[in-house]
Design a protein around this nucleic acid. Sequence first.
DNA 1: TTAATTATATACTAATCGATCCATAAATCA
DNA 2: TGATTTATGGATCGATTAGTATATAATTAA
Lengths: 203, 203
Amino acid sequence: MARTGRPRIFDRDEAVVQAMLLFWEQGFEATSLLQLRAVMGDISAASFYAAFESKEALYKEAVERYMNTFGRVTKSFSDLALSPKEAIETTLRSTAKMQTDSAHPSGCLIVLSATTCSSKNNHIRDIAAEKRKLTRNRLQDCIRRAVDTGELPASTDIHMLTTVFDTFMQGISTQARDGVPFETIDQAITKFMEIWNLVRHSA
Amino acid sequence: MARTGRPRIFDRDEAVVQAMLLFWEQGFEATSLLQLRAVMGDISAASFYAAFESKEALYKEAVERYMNTFGRVTKSFSDLALSPKEAIETTLRSTAKMQTDSAHPSGCLIVLSATTCSSKNNHIRDIAAEKRKLTRNRLQDCIRRAVDTGELPASTDIHMLTTVFDTFMQGISTQARDGVPFETIDQAITKFMEIWNLVRHSA
DNA sequence: TTAATTATATACTAATCGATCCATAAATCA
DNA sequence: TGATTTATGGATCGATTAGTATATAATTAA
């Protein structure tokens, strides 16, 4: 059952991807409708608003698309086939690798695209902030699992340790934006992960 | 010898501070001239452009002001009265304390206010990026000093270790923006700093 | 063939953007 | 006093912002 009406001249799915890349590079507020429509296939304003409700609605779609593609690098947090330590280390290395890939904007869209914005757009900031919270929760679950299975001592301060790893992970975005190469970040991760063994033997 | 001409009706110095706070909160592009003029004492457009050359020039002044006030928390990197480890630990704790102070915007202006911007404004991004580079260099000098004095082994990878601490420090900005309280970050710093001893005994 | 549906192109809106012009006010200097 | 200097208020600039109105084109369903 094909849908009725005049067919869309552009690929909506591909348009979302291109919009995502632009939001990733420039952030929400710095990206204009004119720029968006250009990269989305030189579509008209009418076509844009017919296919997407608003700039904000498109941003939400772009964020979701990011989470389901590039943002998947943090999925290892929830990989029960890995030990918690392996899960975190894998996530950090995948994150660094992805964020320094020159095939797309550097850093993380969720961390960079809307951390600052005008007061009237605080609800925009919340869109990405919510995703950061979700990721942090999965990191925390991963650490909790390590405590539950005895890999880390029962005395471990889960909240504190989550902050240690979350802080480092978010810092990778700025490092990547500033051009620090993957190899350097990767070596830094190797050193950073040694914290795990310290926690392990701090009972 | 008082200067000639009609006296300025607003406090230029205080106006820069208020502009700095607004750039800090909202970022460069999200902050409009209208908002700036409002917080700078409800000054007119003519007064603004007479006292400051442009929005960009004001931003540069605001960045300098930040570096000479709130940004001073990283000065400990260069405090030779402290051991390198103390210098870094002091800087991290001061940074966390400052960035979570509710008396002003959270996080770091240098990290947050211009990491993303429209393509035409890439030179704006460079203003803050240059400051991040300077801070990183002072952190690196601090670590180099530890190697030179023998506090860290001669085999230490200074570049890598600088990345470890710089990444964590920059991550504090997003943590602060997301409302993580000082106490939590402070405890995370305690755990994070244990890396130092690992490097010390990794010869 | 006609109706219904959907997307299109084009023109346009009101608001805001950073920045400028100009006449005038308020100070010092001679 | 009168000349010089600087800052002011207020109007305005062209460009750009996100978003809309309208008429038409292109498809499917009946």
